[in-house]
């Protein structure tokens, strides 16, 4: 199985350079090849389909009042959901990695449930638990807070499905992190708060940002669960993915692709900004 080794390279003189390239090329090729076939080709098909619309038509379909309202609802709600999970994700990951307590393994395992449950089931169970006579919804109802079938419900579904992202991206980094440094900080008299802000948080930031970005992107695209907890009324809690499916089910491919393209472009832009921020942060750090 060692046929990928570089030792048998026929040219011997510029070996170090060659070694570097040959070592580089296989992962590079797999990465680029796979990306092209599996990812860029389908995206190209989408863009090609969207570009069959005249620019004026494209603009018209993309900026109907209904479409505009779905963008706002989708992105703002997803952002809030991702940020909430960012805060609580740090807490949960920290607790799971650093402390021992009963049922820890069980709780750790359960973090992945939002992925494992079909999104439709997630929506169903959230709608049940948070509806006015559900377990949690009935406690909130006297306070005048309605969750199911409102925008809050959309946010709840997004929090639910993106929960694993932050926790799971932070866990490995926390696991690798040396405990000594914190302990050193403590023994030097730093408060918990100081230790957290100055010592623990900075190395976590890249992973945290990644987690939040992944969660955000996933929340933007979520369909299965939101369609059930939301009332799907435009301008109130209709999200973009549901609008796309509505178009698709009417065999309105151009409508679906145009909104799909806009959605893709905005989320990609946001991800790009986050990734740039991260790259910049790293440069700044060193």
């Amino acid at each position: 199985m060692s046929s990928t080794t570089i030792n048998r390279s026929p040219i011997s003189k510029p070996k170090s350079l060659l070694a570097k390239i040959s070592q580089v090329s296989l992962p590079w090729r797999i990465t680029l090849g796979y990306l092209t076939i599996m990812l860029l080709l389908p995206v190209a098909a989408l863009l090609a389909k969207a570009s069959t619309e005249k620019p004026s038509d494209f603009w018209r379909i993309a900026t109907t009042p209904v479409a505009l309202s779905t963008y706002e609802i989708t992105f703002v709600t997803a952002l809030v959901a991702a940020l909430i999970n960012g805060v609580f994700g740090v807490l949960v990951a920290w607790v799971l990695v650093r402390y021992d307590f009963p049922f820890k393994r069980f709780i750790d395992a359960a973090i992945d449930l939002p992925f494992a449950l079909p999104t439709a089931v997630a929506g169903l169970t959230l709608a049940t638990v948070y509806s006015e006579n559900g377990w949690i919804g009935s406690l909130l109802a006297p306070l005048g807070i309605k969750v199911a079938f409102t925008r809050l419900g959309v946010g709840m579904a997004m929090i639910f499905i993106t929960l694993p992202f932050v926790v799971r991206t932070l866990q490995p980094v926390l696991q690798e992190m040396e405990k000594d440094i914190e302990e050193a900080a403590w023994s030097l008299g730093a408060s918990h708060w100081q230790t957290f802000w100055r010592v623990i948080l900075p190395p976590l930031v890249p992973a945290l940002l990644t987690g939040v970005a992944l969660g955000f992107a996933r929340a933007v695209g979520e369909y299965g669960s939101v369609v059930i907890v939301a009332s799907n009324i435009p301008f109130k809690d209709l999200i973009a993915s549901v609008l796309i499916i509505q178009r698709l089910e009417q065999y309105d491919y151009s409508g679906a692709t145009v909104i799909g393209t806009v959605l893709l472009a905005i989320s990609l832009l946001i991800l790009l900004v986050i990734n740039l921020l991260q790259a910049w942060g790293k440069k700044y750090e060193t």
Binding site: L41, G221, Y223, S241, I244
Partner: peptide, 23 residues
């Protein structure tokens, strides 16, 4: 490249299905 790699997250699964049908 990192952002391209993130595309699948940015694409609504429904749109993913649509892309494959379009292909």
């Amino acid at each position: 490249l990192i952002s391209i790699l993130d595309i699948p997250f940015a694409v609504s699964p429904v749109v993913t299905g649509l892309m494959i049908v379009l292909l």
